[in-house]
Amino acid sequence: MSVPQLILSVSLNGAGHHPGAWRMPHASRAQALGGAHYRDMARLAERGRFDFALLGYPPRGSALAPPGSAEAIRLDALSLAAALIPVTTSIGLVAAAPATYWEPFNIARAFSGLDNLSKGRAGWCVDAAWRPEDVGNFKRLDDIDPAMLRERTREFLDVAFALWDSWEADALVFDVANAQFTDHTKVHRIDHAGAFFKVEGPLNSPRPPQGRPLIVQTDTSRDGLELAAATADVLIIRPLTMADAVETTGAAKARAVALGRTLTVLADLPVMGLAGELAELMQGWVEAGACDGFNLLPASYPDDLEAFVDTVIPELRRRGLTPDDYGGSTLRENLGLAQPVSRHAVAARG
């Protein structure tokens, strides 16, 4: 009898996800600001064959946290993800970035770069939250009516998707004899003029190797689930109980299926417990339809990730729940997701 394949991500931060993690004896200041810490943790996660590492999760606002909290320091998640490209080989790199005070063109371009440079390992964790504490820091938020946020976010994603599609996969031809670097008939303006954005395109960066970077969302409100069903590849939920998770996941997946899409749901997993118990619990949740996998939030780095990789992963493998190695070369391949084809290529094929 086949067992479900369990998808795993890990949220990387400085000292760990427990509020007191930075006060543990092995914690160091270098964890907060040094690339070496993130490099080592990403490699450790890669050794455990995590599907992807999340940077900047959970997304939060620009308010300064209290003096006792390590959340007072944050780094730009996109830059961190980019820095991890050359020091890892297979793990996906998913960065949180705003769909509010940034421009869709900037987002599309940055993630096209991340996906191209990583040869198809990039993902965007869409932070679409409107937070009052951000208003004084990001002028662009002045133009946003929170009551219209749902429509605006949807349009933001539509524009980003259209920009990634603006280059067909075979637009770059490098034809030396005929002096044709790009086949200009395969690069298209998007001429988007909606209620919130006006963007002509095309993107100035070729199609991402994955077609579209992996789209990760975290909003489990009613509107959020609807948006995820329509646009996300992965939804991360924070359930209080398994029954909770079964309900949310069931609803989100059913809605996605109704829209002709597939949605993978991961549940936040704070790390605690014995390896055998954890593996048992994880298997139970997946078999009950509570989720397709887990987003690990290690209480402290490196210890809790190390322990998970060294004890829980072997147990999951023994149960046939996770593979030994990365099978695909892109993040979408590793997750068993289809690669989106440019709408222009689809249109051309009739």
Binding site: P86, V87, L172
Partner: peptide
């Protein structure tokens, strides 16, 4: 004409 996001490019070189 390829034009990578330059900040992504320099960030990607920071650790190597």
């Amino acid at each position: 004409i390829y034009s990578m996001d330059p900040l992504v490019s320099i960030a990607a070189l920071a650790l190597v």
